[in-house]
């Protein structure tokens, strides 16, 4: 397609698809570690659990906002697709919302409720995080399967659900490796190693399944120049995995060096997987049904939003970094004063 900037109806949908993709990726990495810590929470002792929650306390709300951003962009930029996708995913969306509600309120209730009820809210924290992760993975699987509900697609979606939960557990454990010390850090390294297997299984499953479902996707990957041009993607993923696995064997380091490596590597893996999926599905926003061009809102409206995004995004990035800088270092007990 000839690409010119003269006709905003041509490039605006691509820009918005890119922004939406970016928001989803940022969400998956950032809220991924929050949710992962929720899934891992029952594995720690009471004191460790408090520390685990403290490591995400100041961040989770902003992290979750990226989901609102992603869904908001889908809603405002591709209204028809938004309706089609969300009505097809009606049940998993509802389950995810219940999960997000439980997880979010449990942050507060688990410390504010009367002591006898606190274990209940700790359970809600775990169950909410798990339910959210599973539903998100399930939706990913169904989306890859073209939003069809058959026993085969549901089986595949169940597999991606489990792998997504493992993936979140992995990135959550990576976050703990950065933010904790002592026993808890050692445990976190062990959790990392265990969850890495699940992540890999998920990658392999998705990489094999996506081309199977659609001949179009198959051709995009396995016709001749493409298969060579795209080779760096799987190779990079493999190298990162090896690097992370190798580092994990040496963690925790006596001087706490390399503590960032697993998290950065994990984020890299998520990014690569995401690139692969984006490549497979482009230009479709509803797989095999609706392209981003067909689904896009009126260019005037998109333009207004784009201006806002360009002005405000750097500010959001700025104060997000500010908050990570303020709360850098090992997680400490959360206090209001």
């Amino acid at each position: 397609m000839a690409f010119t900037f003269d006709d905003p109806a041509l490039w605006l949908p691509v820009v918005f698809a890119g922004l939406m993709g970016l928001s989803i990726l940022v969400y998956v990495v950032l809220d991924g570690f929050d949710l992962g810590i929720g899934i891992l929470a029952p594995l720690g002792t009471d004191a460790e659990r408090d520390r685990m929650v403290a490591s995400i306390g100041p961040f989770w709300d902003a992290n979750e906002t990226w989901l609102v951003m992603a869904i908001g962009l889908l809603l405002v930029a591709f209204p028809t697709a938004h309706g089609a996708i969300l009505t097809a995913l009606y049940l998993p969306v509802a389950l995810m919302l219940v999960g997000l509600i439980l997880r979010g309120v449990a942050f507060e209730f688990r410390v504010k409720a009367p002591a006898p009820n606190q274990p209940l809210w700790n359970t809600a924290f775990f169950a909410g995080s798990l339910l959210t992760s599973l539903s998100q993975g399930f939706m990913l699987g169904l989306y890859i399967m073209g939003l069809e509900w058959t026993s085969a697609t549901v089986a595949f979606a169940t597999l991606t659900a489990v792998c997504t939960a493992a993936g979140y557990g992995f990135i959550g454990a990576c976050w703990l490796v950065i933010k904790t010390e002592g026993d808890l850090q050692r445990k976190a390294v062990r959790w990392c190693k265990l969850a890495l297997g699940g992540v890999l299984a998920g990658f392999v499953a998705i990489s094999m399944a996506t081309p199977m479902v659609s001949a179009r996707v198959f051709d995009k990957w396995f016709s001749v120049p493409e298969v060579i041009l795209l080779a760096p993607l799987p190779i990079a993923a493999l190298l990162i995995t090896i690097g992370v696995a190798w580092t994990l064997r040496r963690l925790p380091h006596a001087t706490d060096r390399y503590r960032h490596v697993p998290f950065v590597g994990g984020a890299g893996l998520f990014g690569l997987a995401f690139l692969g999926l984006a490549y497979s599905f482009y230009p479709y926003v509803v797989p095999e049904q609706l392209t981003i061009y067909e689904a896009a809102s009126a260019p005037e409206s998109l333009m207004i939003i784009l201006v806002g995004v360009l002005v405000v995004m750097p500010m959001i990035a700025g104060y997000t970094v500010l908050s990570y800088v303020i709360f850098r270092g090992k997680a400490r007990e959360l206090t209001y004063d």
């Binding site: 100041p58 709300d61 902003a62 906002t65 951003m69 959001i316």
Partner: peptide, 13 residues
């Protein structure tokens, strides 16, 4: 949303 969510963390903790 981003404004309130990020600064809430700083305001509380």
């Amino acid at each position: 949303f981003f404004l309130e969510a990020v600064f809430l963390g700083i305001m509380l903790f």
